[in-house]
C-alpha cells in the first residue's frame, strides 16, 4: 500500500463516523434519499447513495428517524424525518462532536510543543 492509499483508507474511516451526524443534521424537515444526497454534496459532504440509503433504513429501524411514503409525485418516494428521540440524540451528538473537535484541536496544536519537550 502506498502513502496515498493509506490516506484514502483512513479518510474513509474518518468520514464513516461523521456521515451519521451529517445526515441527521439535514432531517429536521422531511427529505427523501436522493434530495439528501444532493443537499449533502452541495455542502461539501459527498455521500454515495449506496451508503446513504441503507444508512437511512438503519436509522429508521433504530427509531431515530420516521418515514412516510409520498405517492403524489411522479414516482413514489420515501421521506425521512427526525423522530423525537432522533432530535434528542442529534443534540447530544452535536455536543459530543464539539468536544471532540476541541480536544482534537488541542492535540493537533500542541503537538510541536510536546515534541520539543520530549526531545
Amino acid at each position: 500500500m502506498n502513502e496515498q492509499e493509506h490516506i484514502d483508507k483512513l479518510m474513509l474511516e474518518l468520514r464513516r463516523g461523521t456521515i451519521t451526524i451529517g445526515v441527521l443534521s439535514q432531517l429536521f424537515s422531511p427529505q427523501y434519499g436522493y434530495s439528501l444526497v444532493t443537499m449533502l454534496d452541495e455542502k461539501g459532504v459527498p455521500v454515495e447513495p449506496g451508503t446513504l440509503y441503507p444508512l437511512l433504513r438503519r436509522l429508521e429501524k433504530q427509531g431515530l428517524l420516521d418515514s412516510s411514503w409520498d405517492t403524489n409525485e411522479t414516482r413514489p418516494r420515501k421521506y425521512y424525518v427526525l423522530s423525537e428521540m432522533g432530535k434528542r440524540v442529534y443534540d447530544q451528538l452535536c455536543r459530543e462532536w464539539e468536544s471532540i473537535v476541541k480536544s482534537m484541536d488541542d492535540l493537533i496544536n500542541t503537538r510541536g510543543d510536546e515534541n520539543i519537550g520530549d526531545g
Binding site: 427523501y32 414516482r75 420515501k78
Partner: peptide, 15 residues
C-alpha cells in the same frame, strides 16, 4: 427496498 431503489435510480438518471 425495490421501490426505493427504483426511485433512486430514476432520480439519478433524471439528474
Amino acid at each position: 427496498i425495490a421501490i426505493e431503489l427504483r426511485g433512486l435510480i430514476e432520480d439519478m438518471l433524471e439528474e
